[in-house]
Design a protein around this nucleic acid. Structure first.
Lengths: 194, 194
DNA sequence: GTCTATAGGCCGATAGAC
DNA sequence: GTCTATCGGCCTATAGAC
């Protein structure tokens, strides 16, 4: 089938997702129009509907694939020393967050703009991610290398602390990534009583 | 001067702020219309403009007065033991956040929707609040009762951790406030090496 | 696959009556 | 102080041409 004038499906699809993620993160889902996204992609607004049924599905898709990517990127050795696994988790979470700041920002800012079904699915994925850290903490308590009053709350507290890096990190800032990870690992290790 | 029909300025002003705060926090500034706020207040949309010049000023006013209230509510004894001051800060920050969850949520979600001047003013107030904790940490290091690699980063990390409580706290939840404060104080104390 | 054009609707803000 | 009515504009989503 002959290609029609100006068609470039190979790049428009990914580009749509990239630009939507960037704009949603900077201005908020509700504040960004489909026309604005289209302009950033370099097409007219109507063309976007060849790639997403509507704006809501576009947001849900961005959030879900971010959580899927996050879960897929993690790998663990449940037999290893819990403290080493925690250090690895700290490094992983900060690194992934700084590699995908817009997606991370979206994922905790725009959950409220999801339909109930989309929300439930994505909250479930988030729960799976939190359970990774919670397991490490429980193993650490079991092995008596951590002292933790409440593993569930400590999980949420540590994730909030680590994710907060995206709020102030700047590429050209005072501290490089390795140093930031080192500092946060010190904080996390202290918080779990190790 | 005779009161006009249906006038009730004493309650409409505060109610406008309350409803705007609640709706902005739940749906986001951009997603909430002036008509929606007016309906929650119980007036027509046009009546709101007797209380705010425009929607942007309404948001800026909510954020600024929240930061002013937060700063005004804190009191410190710079001569006291730094650890006791830190515990007091943890208790204060969690308590204030749980007392004003919508305002806290707005204050870190909607900064991007402020005009540059409004943003600068409110970011300055936020900086003043962060400097409270940073001073406590520096005093703790100076008195050798805390071990902290980087007081500035530790400040941001602790505030992110403490503020995160608002993301999951429910009145009817598993843990009451006193218990939550106790757990977070344990985490913070460990994080600062005390 | 992308375009132009448009439907149908909601938006922020203002004017003028009471 | 609040109402009704309205202006001009932008919105999401779709239809039909190419």
């Amino acid at each position: 089938m002959a290609r029609t004038q100006g068609s470039r499906a190979e790049i428009t699809g990914p580009l749509l997702r990239d630009e939507a993620r960037r704009l949603f993160a900077r201005q908020g889902y509700a504040a960004v129009s489909m026309r604005q996204i289209a302009a950033a992609v370099g097409v007219q607004a109507g063309a976007l509907y060849a790639y997403t049924p509507d704006k809501q599905a576009l947001l849900a898709d961005l959030l879900e694939s971010h959580m899927q990517d996050l879960l897929a990127a993690w790998s663990d050795d449940p037999g290893a020393d819990p403290l080493a696994r925690l250090e690895r988790f700290v490094r992983f979470h900060i690194g992934f967050s700084l590699d995908h700041p817009d997606a991370v920002f979206l994922s905790y800012m725009e959950l409220r703009n999801l339909s109930p079904q989309n929300f439930a699915r994505i909250a479930g994925l988030r729960g799976r991610y939190e359970s990774i850290l919670e397991s490490i903490l429980r193993d650490g308590v079991g092995a008596s290398v951590m002292r933790i009053e409440d593993p569930k709350l400590t999980t949420l507290a540590l994730i909030a602390m680590l994710t907060g890096v995206t709020n102030w990190y700047r590429e050209e800032g005072r501290l490089d990534r390795a140093r930031i990870v080192q500092i946060y690992w010190g904080l996390a290790r202290g918080a779990v009583g190790a």
